[in-house]
Design a protein around this nucleic acid. Structure first.
Lengths: 149, 149
DNA sequence: GACTTATTGTACCTTATAGTACTATACTCT
DNA sequence: AGAGTATAGTACTATAAGGTACAATAAGTC
């Protein structure tokens, strides 16, 4: 059977990234970009997270996060704070001014997903996302997350 | 309805990239990496392509391809040739030695897809890939390819 | 307590991706 | 033919992504 899941996912990622960047700008969000938005997305849900946990939730390598968080801290989007309970850990949280962006970001995300899933029924979307999550589990089971940690 | 297609696709892309790079190395392919492999993938199918067409087939921006093809040419993977029939175009083709890698790459791809789709029936895979292609069409319809092309 | 191992994050480097601006060529229209 | 427009690709720059190597802290073991 000729499958090409990885290739198709790559194509979708590139297309979606370009469309999403454009939507953010068109909707007047210039405080952060798409990649930063995905990190903010998990921080809006958790308030405060160590970097390794952000890596798990976004599937980004910790080395990627070092640089991303540097730029986001520089831009005033997030703050790094030492964790007194575990001095190896750095706790990341959103700055007060960024909390207000959550609704705006959510609206652009939903606009994006309406295009993404155009022609899909609600049930088809739900079933599709179940598959996406299964694939994430498959890939994570390969031990990638252990090294990523 | 709370959907998060773009976020899940991003996660899959990052995870899949890391796993795929590792598989290529483990299978002894060190002549090229995953991103280069996706460009070779369309060249194996078409023998000779102008750069813009590679962009359409891979969903990469032409500016991305300039740099990628520079490195691939430098590494002896591909060749650029002027198109006498249209002097704006550059035709890209695979070097003879790279033609032999096609089978090897295909095997690693299929190994990757077996992990990717672990627990999926053939019918589920087929249905899922139909959805992926629908999403590509949705995103392309946003006019992104016009600017890219 | 000292020694080893595991965890957490960073520094440094390379490649990938794409936007903006540009050059060169082709096409269109009068 | 000449003027304007569209197409094809590159140069330059910035950000994203991650691998290798490392430092600091914590946890486990004797």
């Amino acid at each position: 059977m000729e499958t090409q899941g990885g290739f198709l996912i790559s194509r979708i990622k590139h297309l979606a990234d370009r469309v999403f960047e454009r939507m953010l700008k068109e909707c007047g969000i210039d405080a952060f970009n798409g990649a930063q938005g995905r990190i903010l997305y998990v921080l809006w849900q958790h308030e405060e997270l160590p970097i390794g946990r952000i890596g798990q939730l976004t599937s980004l390598a910790k080395t990627t996060l070092t640089g991303m968080l540097d730029r986001m801290e520089e831009a005033g989007l997030i703050r790094r704070m030492a964790n007194p309970g575990n001095r190896r850990q750095i706790l990341v949280s959103i700055t007060p001014k960024m909390k207000d962006y959550r609704d705006q970001y959510e609206q652009v995300s939903q606009k994006m997903n309406r295009l993404f899933y155009k022609g899909f029924s609600d049930e088809e979307i739900a079933r599709f996302e179940v598959r996406l999550k299964a694939i994430i589990r498959n890939l994570e089971s390969e031990g990638d997350d252990l090294e990523n940690g």
